[in-house]
Nucleic acid binder design. Structure first.
Length: 257
DNA sequence: GACGATGTTGGCAC
DNA sequence: GGTGCCAACATCGT
């Protein structure tokens, strides 16, 4: 579910509810989502004020009056500002006004009082010059796009969609991309992510924002999830292969190595 | 019921 | 340094 556009949408919908609020108490129930001592984490959060909510890559960062709470949604994490705790609710924050719930069936997400790990630049901020410099690596372009130390925020959906939009084969060598193709990819990433944010992200199965609203960018997908369906540009069936252990969708005619 | 795949990431071996 | 394989977990489709 949650790649940069989804996380950005969650941040935008949750920020008005959290900014300036105080955490009265917190409760954590998953040893996977919150490794370590859960009650001491809860104790350290009690009484803290939320000063700012922002996104860094796929991480949600709550800046507190003391420290910062970092949240990664993993594959199926949801941050919700309303509703009742359910079977997969693994964190409950009681605020001075309202509540914040963290739901995550697969429990691949993480919540910690720790800074986010070292990440590459933001894809919507990096200059073409810096982007091209970072491409000078001996790796397949799709694998590089998924690498969060290369760029922070792209995941499987937006890597495939960006490569489709740029007409670049997922197995193409990053270092060997021409200047023109690198520029096309840089632009494609910006356009795809911007449009996805404008549509509230992609809801493939169960992604929703902090207010429970689905996104709509999935109706604009041209590669991801379209195996066997005709390419919107040339009609050739979209193919699916495995790259870096991830399902990878592309048009064999429009996307050249 | 079994099996494989799913939006993520990290560790390991080579 | 890059890649393949496996791991965590729950759910869903075949």
């Amino acid at each position: 579910m949650p790649e940069l556009p989804e996380v950005e949408t969650v941040v935008r919908t949750v920020a008005p509810y959290l900014t300036g609020r105080r955490i009265v108490s917190a409760r954590f129930t998953s040893r996977f989502v919150t490794p370590g001592n859960r009650s001491s984490l809860a104790a350290r959060l009690a009484g803290r004020a939320v000063q700012r909510v922002h996104r860094r890559g796929k991480f949600i960062v709550l800046t507190l009056d003391q420290g910062a709470l970092t949240i990664h949604l993993g594959m199926t994490g949801k941050l919700l500002v309303s509703g009742d705790p359910g079977k997969h609710t693994h964190a409950i924050f009681t605020l001075d006004h309202g509540v914040l719930l963290y739901d995550d069936p697969r429990q691949f997400g993480r919540i910690a009082l720790a800074p986010e790990p070292p990440l590459g630049p933001e894809p919507l901020e990096i200059s073409l010059e810096d982007f091209r410099a970072r491409l000078r690596r001996k790796a397949r372009i799709k694998a590089l796009l998924l690498n969060q130390k290369f760029l922070a925020g792209l995941g499987n959906i937006y890597a495939d969609e960006s490569l489709f939009a740029a007409g670049i084969h997922p197995l193409a060598s990053a270092a060997k991309l021409s200047a023109a193709r690198a520029a096309r990819l840089h632009q494609a990433i910006r356009e795809i992510l911007s449009e996805a944010i404008a549509l509230g992200g992609s809801s493939i199965s169960d992604y929703v924002d902090a207010q429970g609203q689905r996104g709509w960018f999935q109706v604009r997908h041209r590669a991801y999830g379209r195996e066997g369906q005709p390419c919107v540009s040339c009609g050739t069936p979209i193919r699916k292969i495995l790259v870096a252990q991830r399902g990878t969708h592309f048009c064999p005619k429009c996307q050249k190595r």
